[in-house]
Design a protein around this nucleic acid. Sequence first.
RNA 1: GGAGAGUUGGCUGAGUGGUCGAAAGCGCCUCCCUGCUAAGGAGGUAACUGGGCAACUGGUUCGAGGGUUCGAAUCCCUCACUCUCCGCCA
Length: 415
Amino acid sequence: MLDTKLLRENFDSTKEALLKRGFHLEKNVFQSLDGNRKSLQVEVESLQSARNKLSSEFGEKKKSGESTDHLKKQVDEINLSLKTKEEELNKLSLELNDFLMGIPNIPDESVPVGKDENENVVIEQFGEILTSNKLDHLEISEEIDTEMAAKLAGSRFAVLKGDMAKLQRALISFMLDNAIKNGYQEYYVPFMANEDSLIGTGQLPKFEEDLFRTSEKLFLIPTAEVPLTNIFRNEFIDHKDLPIKVTSHTPCFRSEAGSYGKDTRGLIRQHQFEKIELVQITNPDESMACLDSLLSNACEVLDLLDLPYQIIELCSGDLGFSSCKTFDIEVWMPSQNKYREISSCSNFSDFQARRANIKFKNDGKNQFVHTINGSGLAVGRTLIALIENNYDGKNKVVIPKSLVPYFGSEFLLVN
RNA sequence: GGAGAGUUGGCUGAGUGGUCGAAAGCGCCUCCCUGCUAAGGAGGUAACUGGGCAACUGGUUCGAGGGUUCGAAUCCCUCACUCUCCGCCA
């Protein structure tokens, strides 16, 4: 959520900044909502003030035994007009809140301006890409079984068997250990979250169709960002504790509404996938530096796995709803002959902190923290990349040296 | 699933109809004292929000939502959550 003050005082520049990401902020809607709210609020508050005065007079009169009839009459009158005005004010405040909740974060000034993903900027590439091997992971290994999963649950699920399941488990442990080594505290968290949590991180109210809803009140988490960030919801954090770095491995559940026909084959886009998430709660002054550190923490995993990847910076038009600056890490997928997203590292500035009410005291003043997060990494896609990049063309996949202690073997035999 | 207890400021915790946004303690801030450290002394310190350049000032908030009342942290109802005991259970 944006700061209402910002909209009041710098509407035009805010509107312009949001336009860079293709969002049209309507001036007259905001100004009439906010203006009406303000005048109504002033009115309601002066009525309340009058009532409060009369009520305290009431007590005194009562004590000294004087008559209170005329006071009661006055208060009754005030209450009568208050009632309708208060209702109106509540309604307006809700409308204003809905309006504010629907506005995305403002892109950071450093973000390249662009319309969509085609204008994202490649920052750097690492490793040698392999263009010879065109087999995809399903062709390489029979231990990834989407047909079996279809029987169990439907499309966009997968069953991993035997060593493939073990390899995924090895990747999870490896990534978590790497995060811990870099100073993140590991958490095990619920895989379901309530509405407040999802509002806090920005998935609700606008993107409910992307989520799986379990009951009246709970949703399956689309990313561990939700529980990890909401650990701090409604909390005051000691500034000495910043930045706080936390991590968790969780499955992630996404309905993938609107992606019909897209990435239908294999593990690339699933309703359920494993991910290690990195989250930092930071001082606003340090958040950009923290984003850099988080990005390098994620890249380190690919470095250690010896997989070719590139870092791209999202242009303004491709930024996620809550983000003010995002770097995507894309790993080389030989079968697709292109780089595919494997991590998305974002600075949300105070956007989530304002929604989730996460604050710290700074020189006696209460201030919102900045939240940063990114995958470190998406496990399913890492698994694909590993198989496709390290397939020897015959019967095995070479396990990267740093992963061998976790997997327990230098090769994964396939087919 | 059954029975009971609870939810108050950054934290702990008093507070059963007006003088309570709320005792006390902790923490934090400022100042004093001390060669340093530790200890000690004085004062300040809830959040959100409106108005004002500011001093200051209005309003809301004691888990959430309703109700009773001139007036609710306090009484009533509904809901959520936490804890204890019993039952069941990986």
